[in-house]
Amino acid sequence: MLGWFDANLVSILNGFAIGALLFVLAVGLSIVFGMMDVLNLAHGAFFLVGSYLAVSFVAGDSWGGFLTALGVAAVVGLLAGAVLSGMTEPLARRPILDQALLTLGISLVVAEVLSIVYGNDVRSVSPPPGLDGSVDVAGSAYPTYRLMLIGVGLVLALVVWLVVERTSVGALVRASVADREMVSAMGIDNRKVKVAVLGIGSMLATVAGVLAAPVYGARPGLDETILLLALVVVVIGGLGSIRGALIGALVIGQVESLGRALLPDLASFILFGTLALVLIVRPRGLFAGKVAHS
């Protein structure tokens, strides 16, 4: 058992790193839907915007570049969320399909614009100085940057959890996930809340894109792969559940890494198998709130 563990330690750690990224991504997707009923299929495209920003600011050369990329990505994410909020406003009373089509259209446009600007080649980004080496973890060399990613993911999970569970803003979030009418009943301007939630949700996507760039690089098609993984995480975890997003991200992280390492040919089957298994037992995800149906 210990031997197996040692042999696959790198895969397991990779799984945690992927899980950390997926959590950042999925939590945005999940909150946006849970609170605002907006299914944002452009989430993956926003992620890719972040990755290409990392390319533009040559995040690998200096911390200045890396932090600039993060800052710009955050601002771009917030703005994108605000725009999305405005664009979905007229669709609020229409079938969910219309929203899906709109965000689908946005994601196609964004992805194509990116490929026009950056070309179709795979662009790689190296980690910022000091994190580009590797450290010794139980006898195997492991990239420092990925360890940091795991750390960032854990810190972020903690922060999100604290905010949602312990602050008044969090109480508002929980209340509105449970009962959509609540926010307006409390005399809070629903539209402002929507702009804020979509802004933060999209920001999480673009920031995750920057963070992921030293691991995944940036290439056309990455947006779809990432969106798929994030959707699977959200479905497994349950819409609107922070805890679900965390557990789902960790599970899918391991499936993607350990599963791929152990059974490379069956990786897609394992991913779908996990999804199917969870849904057979819990049709609305592990931690489904009341909102899962609409």
Binding site: F33, L39, L41, I96, L97, A100, E224, T225, L227, L228, L231, V232, V234, V235, L239, D265, A267, S268, F269, L271, F272, L275, A276, L279, I280, P283, R284, A292, H293, S294
Partner: peptide, 30 residues
């Protein structure tokens, strides 16, 4: 595969059909 998507319904249906489609795509490739 559809019974999962159909049983879950609602917005899950959108997400699951998207996921199933993408997985078939990946299988075709791999």
């Amino acid at each position: 595969t559809g019974w999962l998507a159909v049983r879950s319904g609602g917005v899950f249906f959108l997400m699951l059909t998207l996921a199933i489609g993408e997985l078939v795509h990946q299988l075709a490739q791999s």
